[in-house]
């Protein structure tokens, strides 16, 4: 068996918070990512979904080296990334790219599209000036932008077009893995569909792998081969796409799927949702036992007080993993 492209093992990222809290003075640790493990194979897309604030962006940013990891390991083609120096990172920067939610904030407003796209090419020494110019035009073509607009500035494009520029920039260095943090959340449905179709097409063409974070589960279902569900800094379930949607196992996954809004007023106003009750748990002070137990609608099905006392490990069973004391 060949090695996965990316192996994330027991990754944690804690942020120091305080001492300037209103409550106490002690420095606290906010456990944004608290022991996450998963693999991504070459050419495979993994969707990462979960509650707002559960640590998805922090996880993504730690993997690409924007945050130093607190502990744990991230291996790319077997090479440990978390201990690399800035210089040591350079070749991997080329192979692992990131696309952000807000295309405008992540593009320099003073640079033309030509400059934005030439930057990674020049940085990684991908061709002489003339070749690079041709590559920039080819990149624009690949993402469906008019190569004649190469001298324009970001503000002269619509939101969807700006997101395409972000994608073109990510593609410039010929990566194997693109980490996408809510790349289509800010776009209307029609443009969103165009971008998702584009990402799917580019994956086929360049054999790309994606780590794809999004809240729109219909989009995740469309693009991703596998889906990982995160809750309070941990993965609670990871499985092939159809398994998650047809046969969700973790109670949080079930609650999440039941809340997807349906574009039909009659269905939307009458259907049943699993409402999450109870206090929202805090990464500063996570609950004992299963992090989901204070809000879990199925905890009573587990005998004794295991849910509130014992942390369920993420256990692999066949092609899927689950962290829950229920069978």
């Amino acid at each position: 068996m060949t090695r996965p492209l990316l192996e994330v093992q027991n990754l944690t990222k804690h942020f120091p918070v305080g001492p300037r809290t209103f409550l106490g003075n002690a420095q606290q640790h906010l456990r944004a990512v608290d022991g996450v493990s998963f693999n991504i194979e070459r050419g495979v897309s993994l969707g990462l979904v979960g509650e707002s604030g559960c640590g998805k962006s922090t996880c993504a940013r730690t993997i690409v080296g924007l945050h130093p990891a607190t502990s744990g390991s991230v291996r790319y083609e077997g090479v440990e990334l978390t201990t690399l120096s800035r210089r040591g990172w350079l070749p991997y920067r080329r192979k692992i790219q990131m696309i952000f939610q807000d295309p405008y904030a992540s593009l320099d407003p003073r640079q033309t599209v030509a400059q934005i796209l030439d930057e990674p090419l020049a940085l990684f020494g991908l061709g002489r000036r003339r070749e690079r110019r041709l590559r920039v035009l080819a990149l624009l073509e690949a993402v469906g932008l008019n190569p004649r607009h190469v001298q324009r500035y970001p503000h002269e494009f619509s939101g969807g077009q700006r997101q395409r520029i972000g994608i073109a920039r990510a593609l410039a260095s010929e990566p194997d893995l693109i980490v996408c943090d809510e790349p289509v959340s800010a776009l209307d449905v029609s443009i969103q569909a165009q971008i998702v179709n584009l990402l799917a097409e580019l994956r086929e063409r360049f054999d790309l792998a994606y780590l794809f974070i999004a809240h729109d589960l219909a989009v995740v279902r469309h693009l991703c081969d596998r889906i990982a569900v995160m809750y309070l800094g941990r993965l609670v379930e990871e499985a092939p796409r159809e398994e998650i949607f047809k046969n969700p196992s973790h109670p949080y996954t079930k609650a999440l799927l039941s809340a997807v809004p349906y574009p039909d007023p009659e269905i939307e106003r009458t259907r049943e949702r699993i409402v999450l009750r109870g206090d929202v748990p805090s990464p500063l002070n996570p609950p004992s036992g299963c992090p989901f137990h204070p809000r879990c609608h199925q905890a009573h099905e587990v005998s004794g007080d295991r849910c509130s006392h014992q942390v369920p490990e993420l256990l692999q069973k066949g092609d899927r993993s689950l962290a829950c004391h229920l069978d």
Binding site: V189, S190, Q192, V196, H222, Y262
Partner: peptide, 17 residues
């Protein structure tokens, strides 16, 4: 309305826009 992504759409097709 017809380009709204749905949980039951056919994933082997392109998303409609």
């Amino acid at each position: 309305l017809s380009s709204v992504p749905r949980l039951d759409s056919d994933t082997s097709q392109k998303m409609s826009s």
